[in-house]
Design a protein around this nucleic acid. Structure first.
Lengths: 200, 200, 200, 200
DNA sequence: AATGAATGAGGATTCATTCAT
DNA sequence: AATGAATGAATCCTCATTCAT
């Protein structure tokens, strides 16, 4: 019998989802300059509605970025249970690249660099990745000097590399992921010239 | 009697250089949103003057991007004469990263993707890199399946990776360049899941 | 069975009072730009509720302004019974200024200039003041050429004058009320250059 | 032969004047909410032009307010040379009221309360008024306890009083100026209940 | 060639008001 | 009756670009 209350919220929640989806599309197509008006139009709501859900364009972006971090964290945590630590790590990178390939919103992070919510979510992802890396290291699947930070900062690389091509096949990133992952392996590893940076 | 003409040209050339330098600084500091007005101010010229030299903000960006491609091409060509092909390739990547570390203007490329001038210069760089890679490949310094395109698209990676850190030491990129270059080596190379993409 | 109805009415009345009080506070703090949303928030009701009680922001303002006129009218009428007509008039001005000092909402009148309800209440106040002035005039406590209109329009002056100071002591208005009231006195009165305006 | 340079400036200066005039009209008619767009339209220039001359709506307002202070200061200083100190003070109040009657922009001061430029100009006016008051006091034309601050804060009173009337004759303010000035006179002065406030 | 004033489209955000629940 | 979500007009301001001098 609480339905009436929920019903209203259902509408709002739906709009929120519509807005987030529309915003992701617009940002993916037009970059940071995607206008709030266009996002609203694509979501099929009035310009004002967007500000009821996200007080600021920045807040909207934070919601998007945070959401993506959270999704990835969930994946990473699940993979902590996987049998083969090396394969698990590779799988995380594969999922990440796959997501990115379909909609690269990495550039949104520049806007949310100071947002504490986003930072918290990003740190959670970092923790999960670190655990995954440690397992792989212990199992001898990756070189002993590889850290979670290393993997975190190189995670988007395969897709970004593909971005320099004009009309790339949809999964060339797999080539670059493999290439980079080969650099993670113990075989043929040369000593690294600098220590791994600390996590922010 | 030609002196005055020459003087004017010298002035104009000088202004052009001032503008390019100022623009690079502004773009590096503020990203694509750096305003023409700010660039003019930093260059110490009037806003109108900028449009005499570059009909469009895009043209200005194209000049910057093209310039950087040309610089790198020169370096690459010089390195074709080097003794050790593998070291030469690594050196090119080192120089590239070093430049980028000081002023990353990669994001400007998104604007000039269609500019034929820029494309031509970019292609020249590609050719030089390809030659460098072929030499290294022949010398057995890099894996046999590595192509010029591969190197081209991965070239900015070490610096971009560092971009995910908040307060990175100024040369952490060396760590990531080494890591990625380890992936280029023949030792421990696994078969790549996709063929190298054709050059655009 | 009438209880529920009464309860509802009591609730509604209470909400109305809450809203008026909250609105006064907001307007006093933020001026005309105080938003309906802020008023609702301060009153602890939903934005929609405000429009059930007052169809329009203007109506809300009219209710406030009218209320203040009514309050003052009550005071003025009571003072008509006072012993000393001059002191009674001064007392009215004192009460007025004291109210204003705590919460000056005079500026709201600009919005309600056409509202017939407010006009009616304002006219009642005018009548009461006129009577007070006439008594004082008859008693020789104020100059013979002073009218109710004169007093009405000068009534807010002491507080408004203080408004030009940055950090006034809370009762400096008493100085200015005294100064102005000295101008009302018969002693030292010079002939006034224009006749008193008619009441609107 | 410096004409070319000046010519350009002449245009700009003209626009500046047009804008200030248009802004005063708009503000006088619509209050603080007068929109920048409307001001531009009335001035016959594009919306952007207004921001070249006044970086901010606030800056525009500051220019208006400051200008009015400066004008009045000039008048006040001239009156310091007048023969009859009492008449000189009355004349200043007359000029002030006359200006205000035609275009009351007092309410703009609330916006510029923090603007140091405006504060400086306001303080100059205060000094000039104070000197005028002191002369009048010395000459016995006004009561001994009257200060410059008193006059400053009461200066707009006559016109503001008239503002409570719906359709006032254009110079009723003269009546109220006379009434208030009678309160300034030594004759019939009663002791004031509070000391004069210090100048901010 | 250079200047800097003018243009006007476009952007983020606010807010009174309406309306479905 | 109350809620709070949605609306969309209106606002201030920015900026690439044009143009008179």
């Amino acid at each position: 019998m609480t339905t009436p209350v929920r019903t209203q919220r259902a509408d709002a929640t739906r709009n929120r989802e519509l807005l987030l989806a529309a915003a992701e599309q617009e940002f993916a197509e037009k970059g940071l300059e995607a206008s709030v008006a266009d996002i609203a139009r694509r979501a099929g709501v009035a310009k004002g509605t967007i500000f009821r859900h996200f007080a600021t364009k920045e807040d909207l972006i934070a919601a998007i970025v945070g959401g993506h971090f959270a999704n990835l964290t969930a994946v990473a945590r699940e993979l902590l249970e996987a049998d083969e630590p090396g394969a698990a790590l590779l799988e995380l990178l594969t999922v990440t690249a796959d997501n990115l390939q379909q909609k690269d919103l990495t550039f949104l992070q520049s806007v949310t660099a100071q947002d504490s919510q986003v930072i918290a979510l990003r740190d959670e992802l970092y923790e999960a990745i670190s655990a995954l890396v440690e397992r792989a290291r212990t199992a001898g699947a990756v070189r002993p000097d590889l850290t979670g930070t290393d993997v975190f900062v190189l995670m988007c690389t395969p897709v970004h590399a593909v971005g320099f091509l004009s009309d790339p096949a949809p999964d060339v990133w797999r080539r670059y992921l493999a290439l980079i992952f080969d650099g993670f392996r113990p075989e043929g590893a040369t000593p690294l010239p600098r220590p791994a940076p600390n996590w922010p």
